[in-house]
Design a protein around this nucleic acid. Structure first.
Length: 217
DNA sequence: ACCCAGGTGGCCC
DNA sequence: GGGCCACATGGG
């Protein structure tokens, strides 16, 4: 069996289902993805709750809200000079599709990804998180944990986003729940796995870990 | 008092 | 194309 799939099964067996992004609908997933950068989910959840309580949790409402008002609600998620503007602009883009996410996502996936990447504050990880968790698109989502762990396991030498993504997609079945759960496992338990010795001795991935075998990175 | 978190964009070479 | 760096809040 391929190492990438084998590792997934070990992680799933050890940590179980992750219930990642159990958000109330696709739009909340998008808002969360835009706010999530360099902060904690706890603060993002508070920010989303703030927006919801203010009746702002829709493309139309956010597109029409003022930056200062958005800032009041999402300040807790940090980067408050950029995130409110990014949120508003993204929703303005959605309003070009009538605020209808079905219409926005109904285009060719590559076109949608290009569209996402063209938005301010949407890099490859945020674009893929939106595709994966808000649009049911089986695209492998890479983050800092993914890169660190894959390098530690000796799977890859690169740290380039698209190369890491391609490496996993070439070795895993193109399966939506699998991609979702794999990413969730790596992020939720990234601090517990692939750590330097002696902690790595109890890592569920040590049987396929180059570092664990050789003692060197 | 640091250091970091599920990144991104701007700058420099 | 790669290597820095600022960004901002809240929690360890």
């Amino acid at each position: 069996m391929d190492a990438a799939l084998h590792a997934y099964e070990k992680l799933a067996e050890r940590f179980g289902a992750q219930h990642w992004w159990p958000a109330e609908g696709r739009f909340e997933v998008i808002v969360g993805a835009l706010l999530m950068q360099q902060t904690t989910w706890r603060n993002v959840a508070t920010a989303i709750a703030n927006l919801k309580r203010a009746g702002l949790l829709s493309p139309a409402e956010i597109a029409n809200a003022s930056i200062p008002e958005l800032r009041r609600h999402v300040r807790i998620a940090g980067l408050y000079r950029s995130k409110p503007r990014r949120l508003k602009r993204f929703c303005q883009r959605l309003m070009e599709f009538g605020g209808d996410l079905d219409r926005f996502f109904r285009r060719d996936v590559r076109l949608v990804r290009e569209d996402l990447l063209a938005q301010e504050g949407v890099g490859p990880e945020t674009a893929d998180s939106i595709l994966l968790y808000a649009s049911d698109t089986p695209t492998f989502l890479v983050d800092a944990y993914t890169v660190r762990i894959a390098r530690r396991l000796g799977w890859i030498a690169t740290d380039t986003y698209e190369e890491v993504k391609a490496w996993f997609e070439a070795r895993l079945p193109r399966d939506l729940p699998l991609y979702r759960e794999y990413h969730a496992l790596l992020v939720a338990h990234g601090k517990e796995i692939c750590r330097p010795r002696p902690r790595c001795a109890v890592c569920p991935l040590n049987d396929t870990c180059a570092y664990y075998r050789t003692g060197r990175p």
